[in-house]
C-alpha cells in the first residue's frame, strides 16, 4: 500500500523525480515562483524596517523641531571629525551589508530561474506583432487569437517544468507570465529562454511586456496547465489534426 502511494506520488512529480529518487538522490524540482514570493516578503520586510526608521525620525523631527518664535535658529551641534566620519562610514557599511544580504538572497533565487531542470519540456515560442506561436517538439504548433478567443495557446502538463526557447520575427517583445513571476524579452536574431514550473492545474495568461506598437495591449495568450493524461490526449489530437 505504502509503495503504491509513493508510486502515485512519484508519477505525480514526473518521471525524472522518480528516477532521481530511485538513484538515491532526492532532487525536487524547484518552484521559482514560490521562491520569488518568499523573497518578496523578505524584501518587503527589509524595506519596511528601513522605511519606518527614516519616516519615524523624519516626522518626529519635523514635529519636534518646529520653530516656536520668529528669528529662532537651529541648535544642531557641530560634528567633530570623528563623528562626521562615523556618520558616513557606519551607515555606509550598514547599507552595504544590507545590499550584500539582498544580493545574496536574490542571487540564490536567480540561479533557480536560470538553471533549467534537465527534464524540462521544451516549447519554442515565436513572437510577432501581435501574437505568439508555440511549437512543440513533435511539430505540433498552436496560437491563441485574441480577437476570436480561438486557439489553445500554450498548453502544458502539470508538474513538469517547461522551458521556453524564444525568438521574435519582427520587433522586441517580452513574454511575461505574471502568475509564474517571470518574463524575458525576445528579439530577432537572438534566442532567449525562461522556464517555469506549472505546479497547479488551471488557466492563466502570458502577456507582452515590451512595447511593440499598436496592439501591444492585445498581445496576450492563454496558458493552460492540464493533467498529463489530458495533455497526452490533446497533443495526440493536435498531431492528427495537423
Amino acid at each position: 500500500m505504502k509503495r503504491a502511494v509513493s508510486a502515485l506520488v512519484l508519477t505525480g512529480l514526473g518521471l525524472p523525480a522518480a528516477l532521481a529518487d530511485a538513484a538515491g538522490a532526492k532532487v525536487a524540482v524547484p518552484d521559482p515562483a514560490a521562491s520569488w514570493n518568499h523573497l518578496w516578503h523578505d524584501v518587503l520586510l527589509d524595506l519596511f524596517i528601513i522605511g519606518i526608521i527614516f519616516l519615524a525620525a523624519g516626522l518626529y523631527w519635523v514635529w519636534k523641531y518646529r520653530a516656536t518664535r520668529p528669528g529662532q535658529i537651529g541648535t544642531a551641534p557641530k560634528l567633530d571629525k570623528i563623528s562626521a566620519i562615523g556618520f558616513a562610514v557606519v551607515p555606509a557599511f550598514l547599507f552595504m551589508a544590507d545590499d550584500f544580504y539582498l544580493a545574496a538572497k536574490g542571487w540564490t533565487v536567480w540561479n533557480e530561474y536560470r538553471d533549467v531542470p534537465r527534464n524540462a519540456m521544451e516549447v519554442k515560442v515565436t513572437g510577432s506583432m501581435w501574437s505568439w506561436n508555440f511549437e512543440y517538439d513533435n511539430g505540433v504548433s498552436t496560437t491563441f487569437m485574441v480577437d476570436t478567443k480561438e486557439g489553445d495557446g500554450l498548453v502544458v502538463p502539470v508538474g513538469k517544468p517547461v522551458v521556453l526557447r524564444m525568438t521574435s520575427t519582427d520587433v522586441v517583445h517580452s513574454f511575461f507570465l505574471p502568475d509564474y513571476r517571470v518574463k524575458e524579452d525576445m528579439m530577432p536574431g537572438r534566442v532567449t529562454y525562461l522556464w517555469f514550473n506549472p505546479v497547479k492545474v488551471g488557466e492563466t495568461l502570458a502577456t507582452c511586456a515590451e512595447f511593440c506598437g499598436n496592439r501591444h495591449s492585445f498581445m496576450w495568450t492563454k496558458v493552460k496547465v492540464v493533467s498529463q493524461a489530458d495533455f497526452d490526449t490533446w497533443i495526440a489530437k493536435k498531431k492528427q489534426g495537423a
Binding site: E122, K124, R165, T167, P188, G189, R190, V191, Y193
Partner: peptide
C-alpha cells in the same frame, strides 16, 4: 538559422 538557433 533563426529557426534552429537554440535547439538542443
Amino acid at each position: 538559422e533563426q529557426k534552429y538557433m537554440g535547439v538542443k
